[in-house]
Design a protein around this nucleic acid. Sequence first.
RNA 1: CGGGAUGUGGCCUAGUGGCUUAAGGCGCAGCGUUCGGGACGCUGAGAUCGGGAGUUCAAAUCUCCCCAUCCCGACCA
Length: 417
Amino acid sequence: MLQSKLFGKTNKKAPRDEKSVNAKLLARAGFVEKLMAGAYSYLPLGWKVLQKIENIVREEMNTIQGQEILMPALQPKKLWDETGRWESGKDVMFQFKGRGGADLGLGWTHEETLTDIIRNKVNSYQDLPLYIYQIQTKFRNEPRAKSGILRGREFSMKDLYSFHADEKDFLAYYEKVKGSYLKIFKKIGLDAIVIEASGGEFSKLYSHEFQVLTSAGEDTIIYCDCGKFGQNVEVAKLKAGEKCPICGKELKSGRSIEVGNIFTLGTKYSEIMKAYFADKDGKKKPIIMGCYGLGISRAMGAIVEVHNDKNGIIWPVSVAPYQIHLIEIRDEKSGIKKTAEKLYKSLQKEDIEVLYDDRDESPGIKFADADLIGIPLRIVVSERTIAKNSVELKKRDEERIELVKIDEIINKLKNNL
RNA sequence: CGGGAUGUGGCCUAGUGGCUUAAGGCGCAGCGUUCGGGACGCUGAGAUCGGGAGUUCAAAUCUCCCCAUCCCGACCA
């Protein structure tokens, strides 16, 4: 991408009404634009990041046999009346009238919608287990949207639902999802801790949250460095300072962001909504369910909260909008532009994603913008480097600058990315 | 929903009754000089001061109502 054509400019100052680190940096760097509290537009850079996260999640979901679908956000009251959640969820659900006075609402979760599909399509134990997920926009009428893209009224979420014939099969899959989530968070640069949590609206049963420690978080958790024990203070029986029941070390407490939450649903929804299947002996049984949420846009916010410095964002390579930020330091006389352009084309040919700063700007502006945008690897072509038939290679999170011969840079990057 | 704060060109701010035909910086357009960490000079465009009602000879500035945003709390998947 030519930076001169990129939609979305950087800004020295963050908008006055953004206080959270993620919103300030994302707004300044031109990744997002706020429409109202809790509703953000994703500009090209931001949208790229969101899609990268989506695709990592998608890949992992497919690995655990998830099948992707897309359900409507717009939903009829009738469906929600079956579980009583039209009434019990009316504080969180956007509800309004459609044509002809029909009661409609926007989906804030999709148990009802999917269970409705499942009861029509699943008849036999032979149809189970089934793992269905979607990546979709959720609408929740938050009493208080806040912290940039961490808590929105409209946000992107991956929700997976599993359907099983028996408890044992469910539990095995639940553990599988847990492992899959940890892999996802690691891949996108988040150190997530699995903790025990309350079932909330969904379930009084078994539930786990995936929490990322950072002062920007709105949850408080009790955890152990051993990584094997953690509880949300909402349900914690132990306090900070007490001994970890697993390893005996002292427990700590900290603020954290909930980036994922998995629940046992049991037969709650299948019984209410009559989602039954015929067992081997022909007996009708309710399907056992689990649901597994992962906040895509929230994860993006969490990444920014965790990976930044005073100059801007530091994206992990896996989710960075581009892998390389190629910068030419302008000089009319020498062949810098030609060299940079040539390099840009060769990198693209290798399927390396490049943001090429071809703008007629001063070096200071280019470096400052590069730091702000936070692409993990920076290549500089200038008179200095060209004199040595080289380019500079620098990691966003390191000071060290490496001089690499021009004809070696592509191979070097291929091994690095 | 309770408490607190804030709203002035695209962005950040100053101005808190008359010296304001609303000021400065950034950004934007043009010209010239620059060119390794947000360069400089000149010229120019851009604002019904969140909205409405009122008080006053006079309102960005005072009063009332409304709206929006942020923070704390309550709530929350």
